[in-house]
Nucleic acid binder design. Structure first.
Length: 369
DNA sequence: CATCCAAATGTGGGGTAGAG
DNA sequence: CTCTACCCCACATTTGGATG
């Protein structure tokens, strides 16, 4: 959705330029309109008029008499249900039921104003939730209200221009070579196939490892097929229970094949022999759900004497080792199952930079001044 | 040690700002 | 009017304390 910002800026030639969304072309891309002026104030006023002109000229406000709760339920169960994955549905349901509906549910949809939403945000902040959790809750409300705007039940979204607590930027953390060696030693001692080894040498996500079957590994062609992911979510019909869901991987591009190298292949073949389960990582002869893998991982970490890290760090470690070995970004992107190299670049350019610095300093040392 | 439950974090797509 | 790095939001998973 739209970011805040006026979309007015000063040009090098001294004029002010304002932009507004005029229409959409046949592919759904935005067509912008432009307005110029010598003075900022003029552009701002004129732009506001144009924005109104192009967004509301053909709209009629419809009547909706229900409460916020009614609308949220309709929005999620009827309008969103088919469009989003079960895991997303489940997380939205939770945020609505636990936070939004108890605080705002009884109000008339059409009466909800930004002051009340601000009070809601204050209330959330007092609950000691993290900034990102507050964001995720407000996001759900905002999406639902946006739909109400599109349906012409309300004129504007009361969630626009809220000031929310700022989220800290999280750096990705990666194992050092030494830590990786220590962790591998511990993991290799295990009798059955270790999820840690798999993650370090394939970059698979925890849910993907959880759902991996021996039949997904083609030992003749040396390929691992990532076909499903497994996670536990709140049951959507009976809200008191949770259940394990098996689904297609995160996105279409996550469904992928990963080449199986020699050492990992030997390791897997050895482990396959004494494994009676259809799952590579198993628990009581069936899959081991992500929580179980995470639990075992924690024990490995403690034994190896490594600082407290998440399982996902193994995936980052795999990627970083690839970059260090000089694998190009496009290839890495495919391996990781990213849809585009954009994310891969955004995430790993830092380690590329370290690489370049190291290369330069090697050359530099020959200078001998 | 497995399961439940709520919170935290990662990922993809699209908009804005800034420059040409 | 066009190009694109960077940033934000919506969506999708992972994490870990509580509980049995």
């Amino acid at each position: 959705m739209s970011r805040k910002g006026e979309n007015i800026y000063k040009r090098k030639d001294g004029r002010w330029e304002g932009r507004y969304m005029k229409a959409r072309n046949e592919y759904g891309k935005i067509v912008y309109g432009y307005i110029y002026g010598k003075r900022y104030k003029y552009v701002k006023e004129r732009l506001a008029e144009l924005k109104v002109q192009y967004s509301f000229t053909h709209k009629n406000i419809h009547i909706y008499e229900g409460t916020v709760q009614d609308w949220l339920n309709h929005w999620l169960n009827v309008l969103m249900r088919k469009k989003i994955k079960l895991s997303t549905y489940s997380s939205y349901r939770l945020r609505m039921d636990k936070y939004i509906i108890p605080f705002l549910g009884k109000k008339q949809l059409t009466h909800l104003n930004s002051r009340e939403v601000e009070e809601f945000v204050n209330y959330l902040t007092l609950l000691n939730l993290s900034a990102s959790t507050v964001h995720s809750i407000v996001t759900v409300l905002k999406s639902a209200m946006n739909k109400a705007v599109v349906e012409n039940y309300i004129i504007s979204n009361p969630c626009n221009n809220l000031s929310l607590p700022t989220t800290a930027i999280n750096e990705i953390s990666v194992l050092t070579m030494k830590e990786q060696d220590r962790l591998e030693k511990v993991a290799l001692k295990e009798e059955n196939c270790s999820a840690v080894i798999l993650a370090l040498y394939t970059g698979l996500r925890i849910g993907e490892i959880s759902g991996l079957k021996w039949t997904d590994i083609d030992f003749d062609k040396n390929i691992i097929y990532v076909r499903r992911t497994l996670y536990r979510i709140q049951n959507t019909t009976n809200s008191k229970k949770t259940e394990v869901i098996m689904a297609e991987p995160k996105t279409k591009s996550s469904k992928r094949s990963i080449p199986l190298a020699k050492n990992l292949k030997n390791y897997l073949l050895e482990k396959q022999n004494n494994d009676s389960s259809e799952y590579v990582i198993f628990c009581k002869n069936s899959y081991a759900e992500p929580r179980v893998i995470s639990y075992r991982f924690r024990k490995n970490i403690e034994e190896a004497g490594i600082r407290n890290i998440h399982f996902h760090v193994l995936r980052h470690t795999f990627a970083t080792r690839c970059v260090e070995q000089g694998i190009d970004i496009a290839t890495l992107s495919k391996l990781m199952g990213h849809a585009s190299i954009k994310l891969t670049l955004d995430t790993y350019t830092d380690s590329l930079w370290e690489n370049r610095k190291a290369a330069v300093s090697v050359i530099d040392s020959k200078l001998g001044l």
